[in-house]
Simulated assay, not measured.
Amino acid sequence: MADQTSMNPHKVVCSVPIELVFTDTDVKSSRTEHRIDHITDAWFEHHLLHSDISIMRFTPHRDLYSYFMGHQSSPEAYLEWHDKIYTTRGLKAPDREAVLRQKQMEFMNMRNELLRNSSFFMDHPIQARYNPAGYFNIKDGHHRAAFLYVFGFRRVYLEMSSSDYAQWLNEDQAGAVRATIQDQQRQLIYTPILHPEFYYWSSERDRVYPTRLDYMMRYLGVSPLRGTRVVDIGCNIGYHARCFTREGASVTGIEHDADHCRMLKALNDLEHTHFQWIPKPFEGASIGSYDIGIMLTVFYHVMKNEEVCRAFLDKLDQSVEQLLFWESGDDPRKEKRLILENTGFTRYEKLADTFGTGKLRELGVFQK
C-alpha cells in the first residue's frame, strides 16, 4: 500500500488523505527537535495558535497560496505570522516585500513541478509523525502541504516511520471494515474512508475540492476547537464527526440507521478516532447542549411532516447554542425560512452552492 519505500528501511513514503494532515505539535510538550534558537513565552503563545490543527485550517499558509493563485485572498495573515516568529523573540523581522518575493518564487517552482507532472512531491515528501488520535503531525513541510491543499489535492505524500505506517494501517480492523461492507452488500459509500485499503472506493460526497468540510474549516479558521461541543445530526458513517473529533472537539453523532451505526463504529476503530453516537432519530433523542451543530442534507427529510418538523426544530433550538452548519435538500429557501422563523437562530451566511446525489444544494451557517 506504500507508494514508495525510502532508502532508509525504517522509513515509508505513502499518500495520505489531506484530512489527516495536521500542523506540528506543541514543541514544549512533544520534546521534539525544532529550529527555533530560543523559545520565549510570547513566541510559544504565537506557536500554539497554529499548532496541532488540520492543514485545512492553517490560515496563514492557505491564504498565501490562494493569493498567489489570484483568488480573493490576502498575504497579510502569512506576513504577520512570519513577522511574529522574530518579533516574539526580540528580533527584527525580515523585510516583508523580500519575504513575499521569496515565497512567490517558491510557489512558482512548485507550480512548475506540478505542470511538468514530475515526481518532485514524492521525491521530497512531507515528513510527519503519526498521532495516536488518528492523524499525522507534520515535522517538516508545512508550505508544501498547504500548497498542495490549495491546489485541490485530496492526498499528499508523507514520509513516516515504518512503525507509524503499521499503526496507521491497522490491518486487523481494516479486515473488519471489509467484512462489514460485504455483509451489508454496500456498492458505494456516502463519504470517504480515509485509509489506503479503501482508496479505490469512490464516495458520493466530499471527494472533490472544495468539499463541504473545506468550507466549514475555512469558516472556522484557527478558532480553538479543542473541547468544543459538537453534534452531528444525521452523521451517516461518521466522516464529519471524525474530522471534528481529530480537531479535539467533543463530538456526539446522531444516526438512527442501524447499518450506518455499525459501519461508523468499524470506521472509528479503523481510523483510531472515536466519538459518542446515539442510534435514534434526532427529534426523539435525549441529548445535551452543544456549541456547534452539523446538519447536512437532513432537515428536508422531516420538514414535510408538520408534527415531526416541529419536534425537530424544537430539539435543534434547545441543543445547538452558537453555530449550525447546514446543507439543504432541494428547497433551500423553505428550509432557511423554517429554521429562522422557528428557532433562536437570527443570522444566516451562505458558504457555497453545492451539488450532491443528483440535487443542487446550498451550504451555509446559522448563528444565534
Rank of each mutant, 00 (worst) to 15 (best):
M1K: 01
S6C: 07
P17G: 06
L20E: 02
F22K: 01
T23S: 14
D24K: 13
D24R: 12
I39T: 05
D41E: 15
T59V: 15
R62I: 14
P75N: 08
A77Q: 11
V99M: 06
M105P: 11
F107C: 10
F107E: 06
R111N: 14
N117G: 12
N117M: 09
D123V: 01
P125V: 02
P125C: 05
Y130M: 02
F136P: 00
N137F: 06
G141N: 03
Y157T: 01
D172W: 07
A174N: 00
A174Y: 01
G175E: 10
V177E: 00
D183C: 10
R186Q: 09
H195D: 00
P196F: 01
Y200F: 11
S203N: 05
E204W: 10
Y209M: 09
L213K: 06
D214F: 03
R229I: 12
A249G: 08
G253V: 03
I254V: 09
H256R: 15
P281C: 08
S286P: 07
I292V: 13
M295L: 14
T297H: 07
E307K: 15
W326G: 02
E327W: 06
E327P: 08
D330W: 13
D331W: 11
R333L: 13
K336E: 11
K336T: 09
I339G: 02
I339S: 03
I339D: 00
E362C: 11
Q367R: 14
